[in-house]
C-alpha cells in the first residue's frame, strides 16, 4: 500500500513538472496612464492574456485595446478611434525573454529582471526592454509586475496638434499578472 502511495506521489510529481512548463492567465491587469499639467488619463484592462514559459524563460502578453476601460466614455472612444485605431489594430502584444535563474518552486522575490523582447502596438513592432519583478508566492501563484514607458510617436500614434501640448508623448504602462501553478 505504501509503495502504491509513493508511486502515486512520484507519478503526480512527474505530471506536475510537465504541466508546469506553461503558465497562463487571462486576467492580467494592464494600466495605461498619462499625466500632464492640463490633461491626464487613466485606463485599466483586467483581461490581458499572458503565457509564461518557465524553462524557456519566455513571457508573452496579448492585450485587446478595446478592453481598456476609461472613466469617461468619450475618452474611451477617442482612445480607440483617434489614437490606437483599435478597429484596424485590435491588440498590443509583447513577447520577451529573460536570462535570470528563477526557482519557481520556492517562494522568493526576484527584483529587476531584465526582459528583452518585441512590442507590437498600433501595427508597429519595435524592440523593447522592460524591467520586471517576479514573485514566487507561497500560495502557489507567481506574480509578474512591470512598469515601463511607451513613446507614442515611436509607434506612429499621432496626437492631434490641437491637444499636442496637453497629452504627454510618453504613456506609462503598468502590468500585473498572476499565474496559478497547477
Amino acid at each position: 500500500m505504501k509503495k502504491l502511495i509513493l508511486f502515486f506521489i512520484a507519478f503526480s510529481a512527474i505530471n506536475l513538472s510537465i504541466a508546469q512548463e506553461k503558465l497562463t492567465t487571462r486576467t492580467g491587469k494592464v494600466i495605461f496612464q498619462s499625466k500632464t499639467m492640463i490633461e491626464s488619463f487613466y485606463a485599466e484592462n483586467n483581461q490581458a492574456a499572458s503565457i509564461l514559459l518557465i524553462r524557456k524563460k519566455i513571457i508573452a502578453f496579448n492585450v485587446l485595446l478595446k478592453s481598456f476601460k476609461f472613466e469617461k466614455a468619450l475618452m474611451e472612444d477617442h482612445f480607440n478611434e483617434k489614437y490606437v485605431n483599435s478597429d484596424k489594430y485590435p491588440a498590443a502584444k509583447f513577447k520577451g525573454v529573460f536570462t535570470n535563474e528563477i526557482d519557481f518552486k520556492t517562494p522568493n522575490i526576484y527584483k529587476d529582471i531584465v526582459i528583452n523582447g518585441n512590442m507590437t502596438f498600433h501595427g508597429v513592432t519595435k524592440p523593447l526592454t522592460v524591467i520586471a519583478d517576479i514573485r514566487v508566492n507561497d500560495d502557489n501563484t507567481i506574480s509578474f509586475l512591470s512598469n515601463f514607458k511607451l513613446n507614442l510617436e515611436e509607434y506612429n500614434i499621432e496626437i492631434p496638434s490641437l491637444v499636442k501640448d496637453k497629452i504627454a508623448q510618453d504613456v506609462a504602462v503598468s502590468i500585473e499578472t498572476n499565474y496559478k501553478k497547477l
Binding site: 497562463t24 487571462r26 483581461q47 492574456a49 499572458s50 503565457i51 508573452a60 496579448n62 485587446l64 485595446l65 478595446k66 478592453s67 483599435s86 485590435p90 491588440a91 502584444k93
Partner: peptide
Amino acid sequence: MYSGFDEMFNEISLT
C-alpha cells in the same frame, strides 16, 4: 461588447 479576437488562446473576446 465584442472586443476582438485573442490570438494567444484563440478566443473570441467579449467585454
